[in-house]
Design a protein around this nucleic acid. Structure first.
Lengths: 145, 145
DNA sequence: CAAAAATACTTGACTTTGTCAAGTATTTTA
DNA sequence: TAAAATACTTGACAAAGTCAAGTATTTTTG
């Protein structure tokens, strides 16, 4: 086995493990009015200045038509307002309504409480430790890009 | 903001980041004859002694009927052999064929090369560092369960 | 400046993926 | 030994995602 091969296998093992962790944490979508993808879209809408479908697609990989329909559904549900950009008539500026913001906050709370649960049994020190490792991984992987 | 709230938010941020990493690494399924779920099932089949649908469902969350159909399709594609267990006639023992093993190895190679690519720009020291952090996270989260 | 190309979004038709519930065969329990 | 439980299968359906053509607007270019 090449020296690297073992490392790669261990990283894959971690990925399988962490895929499960994420899967568990995503359970909060089950009793929400949103699918996972809708949740991600809503996240982008609530965290992007001058949001548009174009900008959303810069951040998440999603089919243009599919996204268009999700936005249409959000609009019908009263979660967002779409208005043509005055600067560029091709763009639709997307703004969350109060209701949209509320539902997003709700979703966040549910997600947060699952995470709180996950780290519930860890001591303060262990939690810091966990976060340090996470941030370390991020720095390394971002560097590697 | 509660002291924990900030930590939770940072963990979520890492999760979003890592979801993307995993998404990128899962691209290797795109030009394979398997869907992501099929890949996971095949993984279980190739890594479980006396494998059966029951055992697969102990390791991955999947609808019983859906799994049954995936296994049926694997069988038709000549990737596995299903035979009733002599010990318990309700169970079907699943064994990968040579072809199944080959295709699984193939899938692994593709996945491995994407990971190699991911860590390609890291030094030996950084790689070890990365793995240490991953294993640290796993230990912490498994402890927290 | 007008025609062509590109961009942003929408829509229709379709495939894939996943779910739910009822059904069959076998084993375990009472 | 009848009833309940388990392991798997099947049919009908719903949700999620993809592909390609179409519309409106803007940018590029000869």
């Amino acid at each position: 086995m090449k020296p690297d091969q073992e490392l790669v296998e261990k990283i894959r093992s971690f990925n399988r493990f962490y895929t499960n962790v994420i899967g568990l944490l995503d359970q909060y979508f089950l009793d929400s009015p949103f699918s996972l993808t809708e949740g991600r879209v809503l996240y982008e809408i609530c965290n992007t200045e001058e949001c548009s479908a174009k900008k959303i697609r810069e951040n998440i990989v999603i089919d243009e038509g599919y996204l268009s329909r999700i936005l249409e559904s959000f609009s019908k549900r009263g979660l967002i307002k779409k208005t043509p950009s005055p600067k560029d008539g091709r763009l639709r500026i997307i703004v969350p309504t109060e209701k949209g913001k509320r539902e997003f906050a709700n979703l966040n709370n549910n997600s947060n409480s699952l995470i709180s649960q996950l780290i519930g049994k860890l001591s303060e020190e262990e939690r810091e430790n966990l976060l340090n490792k996470m941030e370390g991984i991020r720095i390394l992987l971002e560097k590697a890009k």
